[in-house]
Amino acid sequence: MSERIEIDKDAVRRDLMKLVLTIVELLRQLMERQAIRRVENCELTEEQEEDLGTALMLLSDAMDELTEQFGLTPADLNLDLGPLGPLLPRDR
């Protein structure tokens, strides 16, 4: 019984972070692509483009730091959906 209550807190944190970061990374990549598309369609002012770019760059940095902090690699944040392919592009 007691064994089951004994919980490795680090492992919980790590697994949970992996799940959270996967979702965040998916959203980040979607946002980034959307931003690029908007820029290409000239839908943004220069100021908006700069702000968006800076925000995405910082987010990317934050993701790198977080993944490293939890001992994860970018590949860990990917899920293989079999016939549907990977959740994220393999090389981002």
Partner: peptide, 13 residues
Amino acid sequence: RPSSGAAYLRARR
């Protein structure tokens, strides 16, 4: 590292 937000977006594209 890109020097600005706009440069970052261009590099990603």
